[in-house]
């Protein structure tokens, strides 16, 4: 069982500068070559004026705190028995090259169901203008006891 006293523990801020080629690399790695992700000439003539990151690029800039939860020496999660059970993203604006994202997060919940332990991480990402970009919620499941 994971100690409930860690509910509310905060992580971050984590800074991530959005790289043009990294955005493209992620889109292509996930089999999406639509021009608004990779073609600056095309993007110039859209309302965005430049390429945008695919929404799921939030997995890169918006879940860094979750990575720190997994290796947090205080929590001592049993990584061998841990799976990423569920993921939710909510987006509020698009991400463009050069944006500087700051993510802060917390352990939103810890609970048990039968033999399974659940640890829920919630992160919030804002850009250099302070605008909310994305909320991310990751649920990790540890089988057979948390630590």
């Amino acid at each position: 069982m994971v100690d409930h006293k860690f509910i509310g523990k905060t992580y971050g801020p984590f800074r991530y500068e959005i790289g043009r080629e990294k955005m493209k690399e992620y889109a292509l790695a996930t089999k999406d070559n639509r021009p608004i992700y990779i073609d600056e000439e095309f993007a110039k003539n859209t309302k965005y004026g430049d390429i945008i990151a695919m929404p799921n690029f939030a997995a890169v800039y918006g879940l860094r705190g979750a990575g720190h939860v997994l290796i947090d020496p205080e929590l001592q999660l049993n990584l061998i028995m841990l799976v990423h059970g569920a993921q939710e993203f909510e987006w509020f604006t698009v991400v463009k090259p050069g944006d500087v994202i700051t993510e802060t997060g917390k352990i939103a919940d810890i609970y048990e169901k039968g033999n399974l332990d659940f640890v829920v991480y919630e992160g919030e990402s804002r850009n250099q203008n302070g605008e909310l970009v994305c909320r991310a919620k990751a649920t990790f499941i540890i089988t057979g006891g948390g630590s």
Partner: peptide, 22 residues
């Protein structure tokens, strides 16, 4: 998850119009 997101965006067209996804 990203490939499922692509499938949704293929239908809606504008990636900025995907608001929430779980």
């Amino acid at each position: 998850m990203a490939l499922l997101g692509k499938t949704i965006i293929d239908w809606i067209g504008d990636p900025g119009n995907l608001k929430k996804f779980s």
